[in-house]
Amino acid sequence: TTVHVNGVTYHFPNPEEAKKFVDRVVKEAGLTVEVKGNQWDVE
């Protein structure tokens, strides 16, 4: 699973890890998340 955060790419072994990361980032920074298949874009 690939997560893009403001142009930076993070790779995770599974969607659960990616979701935990995204949830944390979104809570801390108040960002928006767009999910496209296995790819997350966070802005």
Rank of each mutant, 00 (worst) to 15 (best):
T1E: 03
T1D: 02
T2W: 14
T2A: 05
T2L: 09
T2V: 11
T2Y: 14
T2N: 03
V3N: 00
V3G: 00
V3W: 02
V3Y: 02
V3M: 02
H4V: 14
V5W: 14
N6L: 09
N6S: 04
G7C: 12
V8F: 10
V8A: 05
V8T: 06
T9Q: 06
Y10K: 01
Y10Q: 01
Y10G: 00
H11S: 06
H11I: 08
H11Q: 04
H11T: 08
H11C: 15
H11A: 03
H11R: 04
H11P: 01
F12G: 00
F12Y: 01
N14T: 12
N14K: 02
N14G: 05
P15W: 14
E16D: 09
E16G: 04
E16V: 06
E17S: 06
E17A: 09
E17N: 02
A18M: 03
A18P: 00
A18K: 01
K19I: 05
K19S: 05
K19Q: 12
K20H: 06
K20E: 09
K20G: 03
K20L: 09
K20C: 11
K20R: 11
F21V: 00
V22R: 07
V22H: 05
V22Y: 13
D23Q: 07
D23G: 03
R24N: 06
R24C: 15
R24M: 09
R24V: 05
R24G: 05
R24W: 14
V25N: 03
V25Y: 12
V25T: 04
V25P: 01
V25S: 03
V26G: 07
V26S: 11
K27C: 13
E28I: 10
A29T: 13
A29R: 04
G30Y: 06
G30W: 07
G30A: 07
G30C: 15
G30Q: 07
L31Y: 12
L31M: 12
L31Q: 07
T32G: 08
V33H: 07
V33P: 05
E34I: 15
E34C: 15
E34G: 09
V35C: 15
V35E: 08
V35A: 04
K36Y: 10
K36N: 14
K36G: 14
G37M: 07
G37S: 04
N38G: 11
N38C: 15
Q39P: 09
Q39A: 12
Q39D: 12
W40C: 13
W40T: 07
W40F: 10
D41L: 15
V42E: 09
V42L: 09
E43F: 14
E43C: 14
E43L: 14
